[in-house]
Amino acid sequence: MREVDFLHYRPGSSIIHRHDPRFKLLELIIFSAVALAGSPLSLALSGALLAAFHCLAGTSLRGLRKPLLFWLAMALLIAGAAALAEPEPPVVLFGWMSPFGITGLEAGGLRALRLLAVLLAGQLLASTTDPVELAEALKRLLFFLPPAWRGLLAASIGLTVTFIPQVLDEAAAVSDAALSRGLAERRSIFRRVLILARPLAENTLRRAELIADAMLSRSFTPQPTPLQLPMHGRDWLLFAVSLMPLAAELGQKYF
């Protein structure tokens, strides 16, 4: 089975792992809102806090490699597109006047940083929260919905997260088999993708059926025994710290 480290849970016992998932969900919303709409100062504060929380969670650089690579590719696209859209004043490199604008590049860079903060916040939540706890937290935060809807929503999230490594594993197996039979010799990327897509879809559906059978035979219900989610003083403390970027943003706006 392939090890997935992007947006995937890694068991641990750090203070962040033990942090109440309801707070973690709220913190994700706060960090994301500040990162997407806040001032550069609030964004920097969010980034610093997220980096500190990742350190507390014991996140290794290796664990962040895939999210960072994904971000880097997206950042280049975002910054490049913004710099092309605003070509004035142009970036001059060793006397060569490029088609990229400095203002656009700055705006694009800021957008890319905002995306990085959101990715780090998502990765922090996903890598330190068991999907079962996440689902339970969602169930409790969405108390205003009918219980059956909440149960189904929670079950869907848990299953999706469980299924991701299985699909990746299937994709790798299908790709390995095709490559060993000379897939790389095909020139058209489109044809290559088509060749892989059919067996991947078939195998994924077959595996989904197996998982469904296995879950049914273990009496699956969307309303299992609820998890205990006791709140501690440290949960409130971490939550208070997480409110700092929001407080900074509001402070700048109103005072």
């Binding site: 068991d130 079962v132 299985q166 197996l210 998982i211 296995a214 035979s217």
Partner: peptide, 14 residues
């Protein structure tokens, strides 16, 4: 029932 493909039977993260 313990199925042939153990991977498909495991649904927990730990």
């Amino acid at each position: 029932l313990v199925f042939q493909e153990a991977d498909a039977q495991i649904v927990g993260q730990t």
